[in-house]
Simulated scan of single mutants.
Amino acid sequence: MSGEIVSAVHVEAYVGRVTVCAEAIAIGSALSDGHEGFETIVAVRHPHSDEQNQDLTVVSPCGMCRELISDYAPNCYVLLQIDGKIVKTTISELIPYKYSRV
């Protein structure tokens, strides 16, 4: 992509398996719009209005999102929050020894 930011929301469902993560929606939206290649992905948790702590938090992608990112953006960076600091890592560091398509 050429510096464009693609945003999405996490769609929570009562049955957890039906839930769709924001990363998956953002990737799908970008692909639908004809974009290829992703430089960096970050997921941010916005607190509910009734929560006392209203700080935004960077969250790590779940295992399924890691697989999806690895499939569609194998050279992508992912931002994480580790010990209160934002860290930039590669998707291959988060999902090492990825299977290969033959």
Rank of each mutant, 00 (worst) to 15 (best):
N53S: 14
Y14L: 12
P96Q: 05
A30V: 07
V9I: 12
K88W: 02
C62S: 10
V58N: 08
A43W: 00
R45P: 00
D50T: 12
V102N: 11
K98F: 09
L79P: 04
K88E: 05
G63S: 15
A22T: 04
I5T: 08
S29C: 11
N75I: 00
L79Q: 08
R45E: 11
V42N: 01
N53V: 11
S2Q: 09
V59I: 15
K98I: 01
F38I: 15
A26Q: 08
P96S: 07
E93K: 15
V59N: 02
C76I: 06
I25T: 10
E67W: 04
Y14D: 14
V20S: 12
L31Y: 05
C21A: 15
M64K: 13
S32V: 04
D33G: 05
I86T: 11
G34V: 09
R45M: 05
I69Y: 01
P74L: 10
E4G: 04
E93C: 05
I91A: 01
Y14I: 11
P74F: 07
T57H: 13
I82Y: 06
Q54G: 12
V20N: 10
C76T: 08
G16L: 09
V15K: 10
V102E: 12
R17Y: 09
V78Q: 02
K85C: 06
C62F: 02
V78S: 03
E4M: 07
L94Q: 03
E12T: 09
T90W: 00
K98A: 09
V18H: 13
Y72G: 00
K85R: 12
S100F: 04
G16C: 06
S32D: 14
P74Y: 06
T90S: 14
H10T: 09
G63R: 14
V78T: 03
V15D: 12
V78H: 01
L56S: 14
C65K: 01
F38T: 07
S60V: 03
V58S: 06
I91K: 02
Q52I: 11
R45T: 01
V6Y: 06
S92C: 05
G34N: 07
G63H: 14
V6L: 08
E93Q: 15
S100Q: 09
G63V: 13
E12C: 07
E39W: 01
K98S: 09
C65V: 01
H48Y: 13
V42K: 00
V59P: 03
Q52Y: 06
V42D: 00
I91V: 13
R17C: 09
Y99R: 15
K98M: 10
I69N: 04
T57G: 05
T89F: 02
L68Q: 07
K98T: 05
V42R: 01
V42G: 00
E93W: 02
M64W: 02
G16W: 06
V11G: 04
L56P: 09
I27D: 03
I25Y: 06
H46G: 07
V102K: 13
L80W: 03
Q54T: 10
D50M: 10
L31R: 12
E23A: 15
T19R: 10
I95S: 15
S49P: 01
L80Y: 04
R17W: 07
E12I: 05
E23D: 13
N53G: 08
N75R: 09
E39V: 04
P47H: 00
Q54N: 10
E36M: 11
R45C: 04
